[in-house]
Nucleic acid binder design. Structure first.
Lengths: 147, 147
DNA sequence: TGAATTTAGTTTCAATTGTAACTAATATAC
DNA sequence: GTATATTAGTTACAATTGAAACTAAATTCA
């Protein structure tokens, strides 16, 4: 028998949204004030830390952020001196992005902070549950792809 | 051995945020255009559909939305004639909120739509996985409470 | 009681956000 | 080879958002 009444407190898209926003907010509080950096900027830094020399568009594809958001985050980081752009020789539409020394320093400070937060958060779950959650997220993403 | 490098594509707070935003966005597309109603307004309607006569503050507590957001959603719904406010006799700061006939009609139309979306989404998961996801969300919320 | 605090809800303001329209460069098609 | 379409990225604009300050009512406490 399918549900016919909507109980918001049982509705999964809603519950997912609430808990996720709580987590993202708590995490960003760990670094936002201290480094003057917002969520999109941090995500760009994290991507560049792992993949120096990628383009803004690569960041868009890897992060599922909007391209306007990325464009602005990149501009902000550049004006703060945290990253450098270098026009691609073969394709002048693209800019290759790299963290400056200062940007790398910020990355080196925030990354362990973020990992520590994740580790702490996941103490709430057993290793099994972490694996389950990962699999579930993959499946939900697959479903969203096909939708 | 704890992780020492941040892989954004493996970082759970991040993955959770991406998949959740995809889901919320897809769901709201199901009703936003058709009913001229945004996410916060819909959440207020859903709460009132289940709990007629609650106050704006009750909605805030049950939904984890910001009180400014709720205040504006209530005002918007009132001006569209979807809900009515009645000052509480015993405490004139509060307003008791109820859906109008029109508001109930909207609720009656959107609720099955939302439930259908959820049902479709959850076909991606086995019943076991749905139960696991629910338990995991509860545990993560518990962790966030204590943080 | 009457002053100080708390609570419900609103308003103001500035920041963040996404859609759409745009520029500039490259790739494709004829 | 030139016209057309696509791609990278930016800008303009309008809508959404939340923090902070506010009003009005109720509660606490001295």
């Amino acid at each position: 028998m399918a549900k016919t009444t909507l109980h918001l407190e049982k509705f999964l898209p809603y519950r997912l949204s609430v808990v996720t926003n709580r987590i993202s907010g708590a995490l960003s509080r760990h670094y936002a004030d201290r480094f003057g950096i917002g969520i999109p900027e941090w995500r760009v830094i994290a991507n560049l830390g792992r993949h120096p020399g990628i383009t803004a568009n690569d960041v868009v594809e890897q992060s599922a952020m909007d391209k306007v958001t990325v464009s602005r985050a990149v501009a902000a980081l550049e004006s703060k001196g945290l990253l450098a752009r270098k026009r691609d020789i073969n394709d002048k539409r693209k800019s290759r992005l790299t963290l400056s020394a200062k940007g790398q320093a910020v990355h080196a400070e925030i990354a362990p902070l973020a990992l520590g937060f994740e580790r702490d958060l996941l103490t709430a779950l057993s290793p099994d549950e972490v694996a389950q959650l990962e699999r579930i997220i993959d499946k939900l993403n697959g479903k969203m792809d096909s939708l």
